[in-house]
Computed example of a mutant assay.
Amino acid sequence: MFSRANLILALAASATAHMFLEYPVPFGRETLTSSPLAPGDFPCKQRPGVYDVTEMNQWNAGDTKTISFIGSAVHGGGSCQFSITTDTAPSEKSQWKVIQSVVGGCPSNVTGNLTPVDPAGHGAATFPVKMPESIPDGQYTFAWTWLNKHGNREFYMNCAPVQVGSGSGKATTASASKTLSTLPDMFVANLPDTSCSTTEGEDFNYPDAGQNIIEGNGASLGATLNGAGCSTMTKMGAGNGQIGTPTLPQTPSQPEGSSKSAASPLIVIPANPGGVFAPGASSAPAASSAPAAEPAAPVAPVASVAPVAPVAPAQPEAPASNTPSTPSGCTPCTNDGAVVCIGSNQFGLCNRGCAVAQDLARGMSCSAGAVVASTKRSFQFPRAHLRRHGSSRFV
C-alpha cells in the first residue's frame, strides 16, 4: 500500500508541478503558472497581466545575484540561459542578450524529478549570475529560459523587471549597444517541437553559449535538432536585431509635473534568503549600492504594458470586458487551488477558473481531484554538483 507520507509528498510535488522563477521576482507573480510556453506565448509566457510589476528588482552593474526557482518537476535537468533586453514590455521584436548559460544540471542535476525540501517547493539548484559591469543605468527585463532533458520537448521562459543603478546616468542606444552587442542572442527551440525540437535525453549544448558558462557535472551534452523550422525558430531571441535604449526611471530630483513619464518607483529587494545554492556560490549576494530614496509623496507606478492588440478608438461607449480570454489548452474550473483531473494522464491546478493541462509523472494517476501513485515508486533522487567552465571547479 502506498504510505501516507509518500502520498503527501506526491501531492506536494503535483502542487508545485513544473518550475518557475522565484528570484528575481517575476512579472505578474499572481498570474504566472509553471507550465511550458505554447506557440504564441513567446516571449515571457504571454497572458493577461503579463508585465504587471510585482516588485522592481534592484540589480546594479557588476553585482552578482543568486537565481532561484520553485517547483519539483525538473525533468532530469537540462540547459538554461539567463538573458536581458532593454525593453520593459518585451515583444517578438525584442532582442535578448545572454549574460550566462548553464549547460546541463539546470535547474537541478538529478536523474528524474525532485522531492522539495520544504512545502514552499524549494529544492532546485540556485545559480550565481553577474550583471555586466559596463551596462548603463536603466530598467531592463531579465529572462530565464530552459530546455528540459527528459520528457516532452518543451521550452520554458519566465521574465522579471530589473533596475540597474539609480537612473542618474544618461543611457543611450550607443552605450547599451557597446556592452550588449558582444553577447550572444538567446536560443529558442521546442516552440513547438513539431517545428524544431531538441533530442530527448541530451543536455543541450548551445551553439553560442557566450563566455560565462556553467557545465553540470556528468552532463550528457548534445546539440541535435530535428525539424524543418529550426533555421527560423532558433533565431527568435534575436528579435529585430536592435538593442534599443534602457528606460530611465524618474528620480527624486526631477521636478514634479515634468513632461517625462514616471516609471515604477524603486523598491530595493533584499538578498534572496535560503535555497539550495550551486556549490561555490555565495549565499549572500552583494547588497545594492543604491540608497532607497524617500519620496515626498507617494507616486503611483505607471505600468509599461505593451497592449496585445490595438484598442478601437471609434467605440468609446462600449464597456471593456473584465473577463480575460480563455487561453489555449485551458480546462474550465470553478474551485481555485483545486487539482483538476484532465483525462487519465494529465492534471491541472485551478487558477482563476482555468486549469492548464500538465503531464503526470510516470507511475502517477489523477482520480476524483487527487493525484495518487498507481505504482509504488521512490521519491529519492541522487544529487550531483555543478562545476564552472574555466580554472575553478565546484566541489
Score class of each variant (00 low, 15 high):
V268K: 05
P316Y: 14
A223K: 08
S328T: 14
Q139T: 02
V311A: 14
Q95R: 08
E294W: 12
D63S: 07
G121I: 00
G353D: 08
A318F: 15
N190W: 07
L386R: 09
G123K: 04
S283H: 11
A219P: 06
S79A: 08
G71K: 05
Q100E: 15
D193L: 09
A314L: 13
E317T: 14
N60K: 04
H75Q: 15
G62S: 02
T323E: 13
S378G: 14
R352W: 11
D41P: 03
R47L: 09
L225C: 07
I70H: 04
K235G: 00
G201K: 00
Q380P: 00
V103A: 10
A314I: 10
A223Q: 12
L183S: 00
A223P: 01
T173P: 02
T199Q: 13
P192V: 13
V340M: 00
M56F: 06
T126W: 13
S108M: 15
V311H: 06
Q139S: 02
T245M: 12
V129S: 00
A10F: 02
A296I: 09
H122A: 05
V311G: 08
N240F: 07
V129L: 01
I70S: 06
D203Y: 04
M186K: 04
E22Q: 15
F155E: 00
G244E: 09
L21C: 11
S3H: 07
S325L: 12
T232E: 13
F187L: 05
F127A: 00
S283D: 13
L11S: 12
S79Q: 03
Q242E: 13
T16C: 10
R377E: 11
A373T: 11
S177L: 06
T172L: 08
